[in-house]
Amino acid sequence: MKMRNSKLLTRKDLLATFWRSFTAEWAWNYERQMNLGYAYSMVPALQKIYHHQKDQLIKAYQRHLEFFNVTPWLVTFPLGISIAMEEQNALNDDFDVATINDIKVALMGPLSGIGDSFFWGTLRVIATGIGTSLALQGNILGPLLFLLIFNVPAILARYYGLWIGYNIGSSFVEKIQKTGLMDKLSYGASVLGLAVVGAMVATMVTVKMPFKIGSGSDATSLQGIFDGIVPKILPLLFTLFIYWLDKKGWKAQWILLLIAGIGIAGAGLGILG
């Protein structure tokens, strides 16, 4: 990808940011979340931009140690924008420094909204679906494909995000918010993600009820009755039950314990098998 003409930075400087951005979550902390990784990624560009202005450099370091968090694979996009804006700041005396962090903060929510639903909800679900279905048969392609399917798009997004962020700078943000593209992207990602989750509920949650009603040749299993209504309705209802418990505010550990309890009680009583 081509780089916008720059007086201060070279392609190599931006590539340093690209590589450093891989560590964005390495020192993730409760207090300021991704701040150390973000500042670390900004260092090479900032050193070049404020080469002879130590007071400006210190302020820039401190700026980028502020609180920040975003879907990690998209971090290069705000990084690119920040670099473009820092560069503007160094070249223009009347640049409003506060806007640099304003833009970062404005990006956090919407960008994470798209990013989390796409990377966690869609891409990872697809990678997991394909990976586990192979791995359940003991096939080594399972974990390998899982990593490839996830990481190839993730690294491409990381790479191009940097150049797009740098080239278009802050005007980009205003533009996509006006055109409603942000909403469209997250809606489309959720459609795809949920369809896959629905299919995974049908194929990967197992609830079997071998318990029989009646006697002799008239006996029908509970499983048969439920499957007669809608096949796989038991996994669906069970998933919705867990969803409901979570909505009621149940803690994850308790839900996990309850599931283990249902399994043991069900097997002990012969209802589940």
Binding site: I262, L272, G273
Partner: peptide
């Protein structure tokens, strides 16, 4: 019983995903 629970556990993960999406 834990084998049965192994079949049920994915429901937990899917419920968490649904909550977000």
């Amino acid at each position: 019983g834990l084998q049965v629970a192994t079949g049920l556990l994915p429901a937990f993960g899917f419920a968490m995903l649904m909550k977000i999406m």
